[in-house]
């Protein structure tokens, strides 16, 4: 039965703002990085350029994109009270919520994959067109691994954000939650405990200390699964 709900969720994304966001958010990061690199008067070190994308991504754009994505996906149902229809269908609970969460995580993975591709396009453009040229090379496998780990680390914040977005009919609550979380993350970066903050877990992948990287992965991944379970238990018992 879950597979039907998954197909349905994927079908709902056709021509949706959520899907557009998934292309636009990583594109913004890659375009911004590339434009800045083109402005350099010295040769562009490609490895630094390539790592700059995941940096901006994990710190600012990923939390904001997760906020917007969760709101857009939840509002598809809240907006015209689709729950009144969906939850009357056979075995809707908890399948509909689980399918949505899986698709949400899939879209975050897709954004990471697109960022990887867009950064490589940036590398190609810089190599071909930069007035003073480039130096070094990009380790595409390492870039892919970093972005994949960031996706795992972001599971906790994604599930927290999605839970709030699904629980509240108003889009204001999840927006404030997400923007507030991102703001706190920016304010506390560099603090000793900041590495534990859910909105900053994806940045742990770039940490030099391996224990911080492992903590980010464990807390983000296992925490995400735990929150998913709690969300399913809560929303499945909830009245429409």
């Amino acid at each position: 039965m879950l597979h039907r709900y998954l197909f349905a969720e994927i079908l709902k994304l056709r021509r949706s703002l959520a899907l557009m966001l998934c292309v636009a958010a990583p594109a913004c990061v890659a375009v911004l990085g590339t434009v800045i690199a083109f402005d350099r008067k010295t040769p562009v070190p490609l490895d630094t350029f390539a790592l700059g994308g995941p940096g901006i991504w994990s710190f600012v754009m990923l939390p904001l994109a997760v906020t917007a994505l969760s709101v857009l996906m939840a509002q598809m149902e809240h907006g015209s009270r689709n729950w009144n229809h969906l939850l009357t269908l056979p075995r809707a609970r908890p399948n509909v919520f689980l399918a949505k969460a899986i698709v949400m995580l899939g879209l975050i993975a897709m954004m990471s994959a697109l960022l990887w591709a867009f950064m490589l396009v940036g590398v190609a453009l810089l190599t071909a067109l930069h007035p003073v040229g480039v130096i070094g090379a990009v380790d595409t496998a390492q870039l892919a691994r970093i972005l994949a780990l960031m996706t795992v680390c972001s599971a906790l914040v994604a599930m927290l954000q999605f839970w709030v977005a699904l629980a509240y009919r108003s889009f204001v609550v999840p927006l404030v939650f997400g923007i507030g979380g991102t703001f706190v993350a920016i304010s506390t970066i560099g603090a000793a405990k900041a590495a534990w903050f859910p909105w900053l877990l994806a940045t742990d992948v770039l940490a030099t200390r391996s224990e911080v990287r492992q903590m980010g992965l464990l807390l983000g991944g296992i925490g995400g699964l735990a929150v998913l379970g709690a969300m399913l238990a809560h929303l499945s018992r909830r009245e429409a």
């Binding site: 039907r4 709900y5 197909f7 349905a8 079908l11 709902k12 056709r14 021509r15 949706s16 703002l17 598809m76 907006g79 015209s80 009270r81 689709n82 729950w83 009144n84 229809h85 969906l86 009357t88 269908l89 056979p90 809707a92």
Partner: peptide, 28 residues
């Protein structure tokens, strides 16, 4: 049981046929 409760719920960015297709898939 089929139902229409309160407002007619739909996905505005999809066509009428696609809206029905979602429920069709869910009902198998």
């Amino acid at each position: 049981v089929g139902s229409l409760i309160e407002t007619p719920s739909s996905y505005d960015h999809l066509t009428g046929r696609e809206n029905l297709d979602i429920t069709r898939i869910l009902l198998g």
